[in-house]
């Protein structure tokens, strides 16, 4: 046990630093109540808990280095933008909780980080929204690359009628971006780039596996397709989707939407289920 005889006795200081770094929850409790440090003979005026917290952010970031292969541009961007230390400092408690159940897989780490990023990033902030764009881009590509190619024989597309239920493929992701992710990647090739120089424009994308070739496809899609993909959640028939669109002021007939859905099914973005009866 560390000595209780002196304030800031070296073994005691090391014990406190190590405890705070290994248990981000304890560090947070000291930040809320620095007087608690007196109980362990540490002068609360001599310890910079905010900097220690940032150091834990560095350590947590390093623990996620194995994600750099899967999310290279995301890491380059958050490093370049000065977001990675604050992000991982805030994320440390959750990351520690995830580790407490055993060493997480790369997939579990990315999934947990995705969930956290969604709430942490301020989408009104230009750089944060770039980070969210590129993260979703790389995560979607990763999931599609990891997916096993379908062994099902190619199904003939049946009749698409207003009663057909259209559903997004289980490995189809559609995202609204504030830029083209390829522009972020191109810009970050220059380590001295100015992130403000990345062209910004609202762009809609669908990420999916081509049913026929099994290849990953990234398509820039139009507004109508994006909305249809949004609505095709497996609970609505094509007729229902057409009604929703009409109520929103879109002039579309059931027959027209059947044709559009047929094309989306053909491309691999949607799957169609014809209800019995």
């Amino acid at each position: 046990m560390p000595s209780k005889s002196k304030i800031n006795h070296a073994p005691n200081v090391h014990a406190a630093l190590a405890a705070a770094m290994s248990d981000p929850g304890l560090l947070e409790s000291w930040r809320r109540n620095p007087l608690a440090l007196r109980d362990i003979r540490i002068d609360e005026h001599q310890i910079d808990l905010t900097q220690i917290r940032n150091f834990v952010g560095l350590v947590t970031k390093v623990r996620h280095n194995d994600l750099r292969t899967a999310l290279p541009v995301t890491f380059r961007l958050i490093d370049k933008a000065g977001l990675s230390i604050p992000l991982f400092a805030d994320y440390a408690v959750k990351a520690a909780a995830l580790r407490s159940h055993g060493k997480p897989t790369q997939g579990q780490k990315i999934e947990a980080l995705a969930e956290y990023l969604k709430g942490w990033l301020d989408m009104e902030n230009g750089v944060h929204s770039l980070a969210w764009d590129v993260f979703r881009h790389e995560y979607s590509v990763l999931l599609l690359r990891q997916a096993k190619p379908s062994t099902r024989p190619q199904r003939e597309i049946g009749k698409i009628s207003p009663g057909t239920v259209a559903q997004r493929g289980s490995l189809m992701f559609h995202h609204e971006m504030t830029c083209r992710p390829s522009d972020i990647e191109a810009a970050l090739k220059d380590r001295n780039c100015d992130l403000k120089g990345i062209p910004r424009q609202r762009t809609l994308y669908a990420y999916f596996g081509d049913e026929q070739s099994g290849r990953l496809r990234i398509s820039e899609i139009d507004e109508a397709t994006f909305v249809i993909l949004d609505l095709a959640d497996g609970t609505r028939s094509v007729g229902n989707i057409a009604s929703v669109l009409r109520r929103a002021g879109v002039s579309v007939k059931d027959r027209q939407l059947c044709q559009i859905v047929r094309e989306l099914v053909s491309s691999g973005m949607l799957v169609a289920n014809n209800r019995e009866g």
């Binding site: 046990m1 560390p2 073994p11 005691n12 014990a15 190590a18 405890a19 770094m21 362990i40 623990r63």
Partner: peptide, 25 residues
């Protein structure tokens, strides 16, 4: 990289071993 347990409570923490090195006092 390793430090004594904190002398707080009964045995709130076991001896702590980190996975990274820390600048000492």
């Amino acid at each position: 990289i390793s430090a004594d347990p904190l002398a707080q409570g009964t045995s709130m923490h076991e001896p702590t071993t980190l996975t990274y090195t820390v600048c000492p006092q």
